[in-house]
Design a binder for these strands. Structure first.
Length: 485
RNA sequence: GACCCCUUCGUCUAGCUGGCCUAGGACACGGCCCUUUCAAGGCCGCGACACGGGUUCGAAUCCCGUAGGGGUCGCCA
């Protein structure tokens, strides 16, 4: 029986579901699929001052939206629970007692004021700010208000392996006597992650690079407990365009934002997979399954990628174009109020016209607004092609109107042919006619394919809009104002 | 500042067991084609091995140094 390889991602419940969380989760998920074992989602909620119960569901829900299923998590349970660290405090306390008994940790009752003063002094002397060891040998009583600190060796160094890099060595002087248990009885990340990872059977850890410097503290804990070290893989940090660590101020970092702004989960996932990972065959578009298939931890890059929204938008367009009409209409109606209010069958007719024109699903309403209103407004200047008179233009539009009025039903091919004939008879370029017509029908310079749009709109509406345009040409000061709908 | 990590086109990257690299692909950008607008699509173009030393017949690929960027230095994770 082989030992299960288990990887985990620990979403913080403090704040929005973060794109960095999804990034780490994706790689953990792929790793677990490739290596076997269980993929655990644990809730790091030991910072009670920032804890927000609502965001826990948001994170779990968003990872579900992305299609990254955990084998075990607080919602679905599993053999290694509970999965909320706030429900495991007894474990951490017991672990601390053990550490204190063996001399690997100690109680400390230094006040915030004293610590601040010590650090200020150290900074003034250009020393590295760190705990000065005041309580190391003081034997602070257990019934006083205190924290528990890790007793880091005063000399020597800690070396650990990272699956993506050469061995990393950090001198003990660089390692602070980390607080393991806070005075409120909750553990810090360092204690909690080591205790939980061990108790939950976690043998392989993929986490963000920002943890590299605190890994020696974790190594010290594993050694004190006599537990086998896990394998570490520190993933590169996602960055803003200005190269700093990805942040809310400079980049949308909330997964909710991406969902609300018309991004498809498969596009986001694909994009995240592109960051810090390269297929040897130059592939750019891939599904989760294909990513898992190609995944190998050794192929993860160590340089930190910049999160490029422009490329994500392109990729999102690619995925929008792949959608079948039914799915497209569903997604569109989730995010576009006008489309949601309109008849579903109508939206299903319109949607294909815009499918290859959208980078985000949220662009749909603006692109197709003219379908839902009775009339559109258009100005005299827009309507008039260069070097044409208003009377001439009105005459040509009148002919187009007649062609439409005389046809039984509007058919794309027939209508286009008829309109081209109108242009030719009037010695107009087809382009001129279509532009004038486009303004008349849509009220815009740019629109979805004109003929198709007209056929969907129907005879009556087209005629009415052309009549409005002809009126404008005869009365330049009064553009048509759409009626309130 | 100290320590740690990183360094191929503006961005994401291929390359990394040295020669197939006058460095390939994608996004973006510019041009052309297609075309009723805008897209989509097709073609072309612009554009990088941070720098300096080595090792070698030969280095983007190995070594050293420098520079630059990022991260960490909390009773946050």
């Amino acid at each position: 029986m082989s030992e299960p390889v288990v990887v985990r991602v620990a979403p913080s419940p403090t704040g929005d579901p973060h794109v960095g969380t999804a990034y780490v989760a994706l790689f953990n998920y792929a790793y677990r699929r490739k290596r076997g074992g269980r993929f655990i989602l644990r809730i790091d909620d030991t910072d009670r001052s920032r804890y927000d119960a609502g965001s826990e569901e948001q994170i779990l829900g968003t990872l579900g939206w992305l299609g990254i299923p955990a084998d075990e998590d607080p919602e679905h349970g599993g053999e290694a629970g509970p999965y909320r660290q706030s429900e495991r405090t007894d474990l951490y306390r017991a672990a601390c007692d053990e550490l204190i008994a063996m001399g690997a940790a100690y109680r400390c009752d230094c006040t915030k004021e004293r610590l601040d003063a010590v650090r200020a002094e150290q900074r003034k002397n250009k020393q590295q700010p760190r705990y000065d060891g005041h309580c190391r040998e003081r034997n602070v009583p257990a019934d006083s208000k205190h924290v528990v600190r890790l007793k880091v060796p005063t000399e020597g160094e800690i070396t650990f392996k990272d699956g993506l890099r050469d061995a990393i060595t950090i001198a003990c002087e660089q390692i602070d006597d980390q607080v393991l248990l806070k005075s409120d009885g909750y553990p810090t990340y360092h204690l909690a992650t080591v205790v939980d990872d061990h108790k939950m059977g976690v043998t392989d850890i993929l986490r963000a690079e920002e943890w590299i410097n605190s890994t020696p503290k974790h190594v010290l804990l594993y050694e004190a407990f006599g537990w086998p070290l896990p394998r570490y893989y520190h993933l590169p940090l996602l960055r803003n365009p200005d190269k700093s660590k990805i942040s809310k101020r400079k980049n949308p970092t909330s997964l909710l934002w991406y969902r609300e702004n018309g991004f498809l989960p498969e596009a986001l996932l694909n994009f995240l997979g592109l960051m810090g990972f390269g297929f040897s065959d130059d592939r750019e578009e891939f599904s989760l399954e294909e990513f898992v298939d190609a995944f190998a931890p050794e192929k993860i890059k160590t340089s930190q990628p910049i999160f490029d929204l422009t490329k994500l938008e392109w990729l999102n367009g690619v995925y929008i174009r792949k959608l079948d009409t039914e799915t497209l209409v569903d997604r569109l109606r989730e995010l576009n109020p006008m489309a949601a209010a309109a008849d579903r069958a109508l939206v299903a007719q319109i949607a294909p016209l815009t499918q290859e024109r959208m980078k985000r699903l949220t662009e749909f309403d603006e692109l197709t607004e003219f379908f839902y209103v009775d009339r559109v407004s258009v100005s005299y200047d827009d309507l008039l092609p260069k070097k044409r008179t208003d009377t001439n233009t009105a005459a040509v539009l009148r002919q187009a109107r007649q062609v439409i009025a005389e046809s039984d039903t509007l058919d794309v091919e027939a209508l286009e042919a008829a309109l081209r004939a109108v242009a030719e008879e009037s010695d107009w370029k087809a382009r001129e006619l279509f532009t004038a017509l486009r303004w008349s029908i849509t009220g815009k310079k740019i629109s979805p394919p004109l003929i198709e749009s007209m056929c969907i709109l129907g005879k009556a509406s087209c005629i009415e809009r052309i009549d409005d345009a002809i009126d404008v040409l005869g009365n330049p000061a009064n553009p048509i104002i759409p009626e309130a709908t």
